[in-house]
Every structure is written in C-alpha cells, then in structure tokens.
Design a protein around this nucleic acid. Structure first.
Lengths: 137, 137
DNA sequence: ATCCTACATTGGACATTGTCTAAGTCAAGA
DNA sequence: TCTTGACTTAGACAATGTCCAATGTAGGAT
C-alpha cells in the first residue's frame, strides 16, 4: 500500500493531507473498517477532517479499484484495501468481524448458462457466515 | 406458501390481520421486496398497517426461518420467501433486480480447514453480480 | 357468548448511515 | 508567485431501521 499514493498521483489525483491520511489508515493487513471508523482514525492525525471527505475519498478509492466495499449485512459497509488479491470473506454473525479467505474451485463455472438469465456476470462474491471462536464460547 | 399461516399458527403465532397481509404479500415466486415495498403493498389491503409492524413481522419470519433476508448492497434489505429451497442470488448492479439461481458444487467444502480460523460456519452465501439484459442494452 | 390478559399494533421520536450543496481553501502547473 | 479548478467543510437532508409507551385484540377460559 506504500506505493498507493504514487499510483494515485500517476492517475491525476490531487494529493491532499486528507487523502493521505485516509490512505494511511487503510494501510495494513486484514483491515476492514467502516467509514466511521476510518473517519475516527483519520481524525486522530488530522482533527479537522470531515465525514464528507472520508466518504468521498473512500468512494474514489473504490471507483479506482484500490479498495473493495463489503456489505456484510444491514450494518455499515466496510472497506477492504486488499483489492489486488482475489479473496472472499468470512464474517462472524455476532460481532461482525471479517477475515479474508481463499476458497478453491471456480465459482463462476458453477453457474450453468441457463441460470444466467442473459446477465453479463462480472463478479462473484462469497460470504461464509458463522460464529468466531470468541463469540461461540 | 399457502400453508405458511397454518405452520406459523402451529408454532404459537397469534394470527392477526396485519400478519396475514404481510404473509400474503410475500406469497409468490421470485419475490424480493424491500421492507418499504412490503409495507406499501400491505397498505393497499390494510391501509392502517404501520411500518413498525411490517418490520416486526418480517423480522419474525426471518427468525422462524420462513423468509431469508438479502443484503445486496448498501440499499435496503430485501426479503426472500423462498427459504425452503437452497439457492443463491444473481443481482443486477444497476437496477438491483434479483434472480434466484442454483450453482453446482459444494461451496462449504471449497474452504480449507486452515482458512476457517476456528469459526463454526453455518451458512454460505454467493452473490453473482452483473448487468441484466435490460441494463446492459 | 363474554371476559381476560398476554401479546400485538400503532405513531412518532430517535438512531445510524450515507448524500448533497454552497462557500471557502488549497495543490500544483504556468 | 499567481491562478484556477479541484478539494474540503459544516451542516442540512434523505433513507432505512429501531424503540417505546399507549392502545387494541386474538384466542383460551369461564
């Protein structure tokens, strides 16, 4: 992720303090924050950053394909910076924790043509649900 | 679905006009309404029905396993009465239309043990995304 | 058939998450 | 350094969902 800013600048992104802070917050492994969490963490470094800017920046990162938006349930969307490695999600039904997982098998091939209803399918998402060790205890 | 009310009464459900109307609205094939749509349709038959009751009833039906809650994206959840046949969903990324589909393959077996992080996995959901024929045109 | 009462419904306030806008600010090229 | 169009901000607004106290009622008991 350290070269993310470089990549974005190459695409004509204007590099502002706010965008830099948001990108820094998303840096790291197994990070799946909500927009509000990103805002809180960003505000630790840049207290005046507004919610609107965080939403804007996250939306741009999603559009650019640098970050994936994960809607686990009715709760807030989470943002996953691990966009360059195909993966799926394992979600705790109780506390909402997310882990990245890598199932085997060709998910797209599993859907017969006659079940595609003429759709141009562009993505397959798999969500495994269950209780994490802490919540199961 | 016609025997749904019987089944629910057998479980001690008090049968009210409101609950009957909500169940009737959900009756049918390939129905994936949002809570607000259910409320609007129910209100056609029972104008005084409140939003709270629709939310309560949908929640109960989900808890009882008669209806499945589908969170397609950041939009409103949709309610799928086809709970007794395992199936997955095909969603149009543009208009939000949902079709029920039945992929082959054992999705649960596709996740290696070492990728389960000690979770007790209880469900697997697959969402295929793409553009429906209308939106692709 | 009528009465009781626990359960269901109602309306509206409230909460959460996200979007939009007008006005001010600033990064970066000239 | 100047200029300008893109960026940020605060706060109003919107969409969806939850909660509560007051009221109503289904269905068993009498």
């Amino acid at each position: 992720m350290s070269d993310l800013l470089e990549r974005l600048r190459g695409r004509g992104w204007r590099l502002t303090a706010q965008r830099r802070v948001v990108a820094e917050v998303l840096d790291g492994d197994h990070v799946h924050y909500t927009a509000d969490e990103v805002h809180a963490l960003a505000a630790e470094r840049l207290p005046e950053i507004s919610r609107a800017t965080v939403y804007n920046t996250l939306g741009e990162l999603v559009t650019l394909g640098e970050v994936i938006e994960v809607s686990t349930d009715g709760r807030a969307k989470r943002y996953d910076p691990n966009a360059h490695h195909a993966h799926q999600h394992l979600v705790c039904a109780r506390c909402g924790t997310i882990r990245d997982v890598h199932p085997s098998g060709d998910l797209l091939a599993d859907l017969p043509t006659q079940e595609r209803y003429g759709f141009a399918i562009s993505a397959v998402e798999v969500t495994y649900r269950g209780l994490c060790p802490d919540c199961a205890a």
